[in-house]
Simulated assay, not measured.
Amino acid sequence: MDTEVSSAINSDSVNKKRKIGQSAESSISTSHFNNNSRIIPRAPRVTRDGKVAVIYQPHQGLGWYSEHRIEALLFDPEIVAMIENDVSGSKIYEYCYKMNYGWSVMDTICYGLSIKWVPISEEFRIHDSDGRETVVMKSTDQWFKA
């Protein structure tokens, strides 16, 4: 089922529409305000039901974010759509290569990617254990104070 996806371009909420094969209403946010009310560009994010799609590698081997450390690739809307549509890792790699994401995006890390839906504004980190990544929310992780 095709749905419209809104892409927020600036603070005036100018929207561009495009079709993607998804079953739920999604939007793509591309900016946010800092404390001084200035718009700061950020990596576009797919949001649904108050949550943001975060891309990670749940299998042992080489981690997705752990290998390339490119924030935009944690959230890339095109890769989210590819994962949801079961597109092969080689197609994801071709997309990354075409977008000039750099040599750190290797063919081998593009297979078996998953999406974790994180509540908007929730702080999180990517934990890597032998290439197996997990998305750890600050609110659920135990922090110590010295």
Rank of each mutant, 00 (worst) to 15 (best):
I40R: 08
P41M: 03
R42W: 01
A43R: 00
A43S: 13
A43C: 01
R45Y: 05
R45L: 12
V46Y: 05
T47S: 14
T47N: 15
T47A: 13
R48P: 05
K51F: 03
K51E: 11
V52D: 07
A53F: 07
V54F: 03
Y56K: 03
Y56C: 03
Q57D: 09
H59R: 12
Q60C: 08
G61L: 07
G61K: 09
L62W: 13
L62N: 14
G63K: 08
W64M: 08
Y65E: 09
S66G: 15
E67D: 14
E67W: 14
I70Y: 05
A72S: 15
L73C: 04
L74D: 02
F75M: 06
F75A: 05
P77R: 05
P77L: 03
P77C: 07
E78P: 05
E78C: 11
I79T: 06
V80P: 02
V80C: 11
V80R: 02
M82W: 03
M82V: 03
E84L: 12
E84S: 08
E84C: 02
N85I: 06
D86T: 11
S88N: 07
G89D: 04
G89Q: 00
S90N: 13
K91R: 12
I92C: 04
I92H: 02
Y93Q: 03
C96G: 02
Y97K: 13
Y97G: 01
K98W: 09
Y101A: 01
G102L: 05
G102M: 08
W103N: 15
M106A: 13
D107R: 15
T108D: 14
T108Q: 15
T108Y: 14
T108W: 11
I109K: 08
I109N: 09
C110V: 09
Y111I: 11
L113Y: 06
I115E: 04
I115V: 09
I115D: 06
K116C: 07
K116A: 11
V118A: 00
I120A: 11
S121A: 12
E122M: 07
E123M: 12
E123P: 09
F124W: 13
F124V: 01
R125C: 14
I126W: 01
D128V: 03
S129A: 11
S129I: 07
S129Y: 11
S129T: 06
D130V: 06
G131H: 07
G131A: 05
E133P: 00
E133F: 00
E133M: 00
T134W: 02
T134Q: 11
V135S: 00
V135C: 05
V136Q: 13
M137Y: 14
M137V: 03
K138E: 12
T140K: 12
T140W: 05
T140E: 13
D141C: 10
D141P: 04
Q142W: 10
W143H: 13
W143G: 10
